[in-house]
Simulated assay, not measured.
Amino acid sequence: MTQTSNAEAAAWTVLDAASRRAGLDPSGAELMRLGENALFRLPGGIVARVSRPGQLAAAKREVAVARWLGANHVPAVQTWPDIDQPIEVDDRAITWWQELPPHRPGTALTVATALRRLHDLPPPTDFDIGRLDPFVRLAERIDRATTLTEADRAWMRTHLAELKTRYAALPEGLPQTVVHGDAWIGNVVSTNDGKVVLLDLERCSIGPPEWDLTSTAVKAFTLAGITSKDYDIFVRTYGHDVTSWAGFETLRDTREFRMTCMAAQVAAENPARLDEVLLRLACLRGEHGSRPWIWTAVP
């Protein structure tokens, strides 16, 4: 059995145990996606999310954030009612969500609209939403990137330390707000009834709004995934261009490194993706010329 199928089998086992503890029947469930989290569709419009080990605190925060956003009339993925969640099984956190109605992927416009709405909200007062950690889990991902050479992992550890030093010295920017934490176009969708809905709330926290804005700038200028016209629409809709800020390059480099560490984690479970990790590392080291770079998405 491959590492990927091992991970899938473990997620199914956890789903079964957690569902029964929650009073739900997992019969007929289907795997929707196996990535950072495992997503399953259960009959009746329920989506179960099984985390990686050690993510109980993040899952608790995600549930609290979803309920807070709902109370503030901000369209976001909503928890399944009448379940005391998350439930922990084998060090994994399981949460249940209402399946979204028909929807389509986000655009620069919809991301800007959603972020403007989120950043304008006063922080919650009934729970601790926490502080943004742009480097969360990166050291662990490097340690587990066993398909890489030790020399590559040593370079990644050094680069991580350099990024942390640069982040600690960021210049003053916009006032700190509630940020999404992973605000790329895959985490914002438009439903057929016209709502712009936020997904994947596990990294919501207090932090510099520039962190959220940088994701779209990276999409435009690192990956050429959207046009400069799209980026101009994003800037006009939100009302600020993060690329003009003196701290932008630090956040850009950190976001690019997060994407590389995520790919390294995937390659540890699916060695067929190793070439993508090596490409990204080469780009970060300056061996593939200037941006934009052609990176292939990993699950």
Rank of each mutant, 00 (worst) to 15 (best):
Q3R: 15
N6E: 14
N6I: 13
E8A: 14
T13L: 15
L15D: 03
D16R: 13
A18F: 05
S19E: 02
R20Q: 09
G23L: 04
L24R: 00
L24F: 04
M32K: 12
L34M: 08
G35I: 06
L39Y: 14
F40M: 07
P43N: 03
G45R: 01
S51N: 03
S51P: 01
L56I: 10
A58Q: 14
A59W: 10
K60W: 12
K60F: 06
E62Y: 00
W68D: 12
N72D: 00
P81L: 01
D82C: 12
P86G: 03
I87Y: 07
V89L: 00
V89C: 01
D90E: 15
D90G: 02
D90Q: 14
D91R: 11
R92F: 04
R92G: 04
Q98D: 03
L100T: 04
R104C: 04
A108H: 01
L109N: 13
L109F: 13
L109P: 00
T113R: 13
A114L: 01
L115T: 05
L118V: 10
H119E: 09
H119Y: 05
P124D: 09
D126L: 09
I129N: 02
D133K: 04
P134T: 01
F135Y: 12
A139N: 11
E140L: 08
R141Y: 08
R144P: 01
T147K: 12
T149V: 06
E150M: 12
A154I: 07
A154K: 09
H159N: 12
L160S: 07
A161N: 12
K164W: 05
V178M: 15
V179P: 08
G181Y: 05
D182I: 02
D182S: 02
I185W: 06
G186K: 01
G186R: 00
V188H: 02
G194M: 06
L198V: 06
D200I: 02
L201S: 07
I206S: 02
I206D: 03
E210M: 04
W211S: 09
T214L: 00
S215T: 11
V218D: 05
A220L: 10
T222D: 12
G225T: 03
I226C: 12
D230P: 02
D232S: 13
D241N: 15
V242Q: 05
G247R: 11
F248V: 02
D253V: 07
F257A: 06
F257T: 09
T260K: 08
C261E: 01
A263M: 12
A267V: 06
R273H: 14
V277T: 10
L279H: 14
A282P: 11
C283V: 15
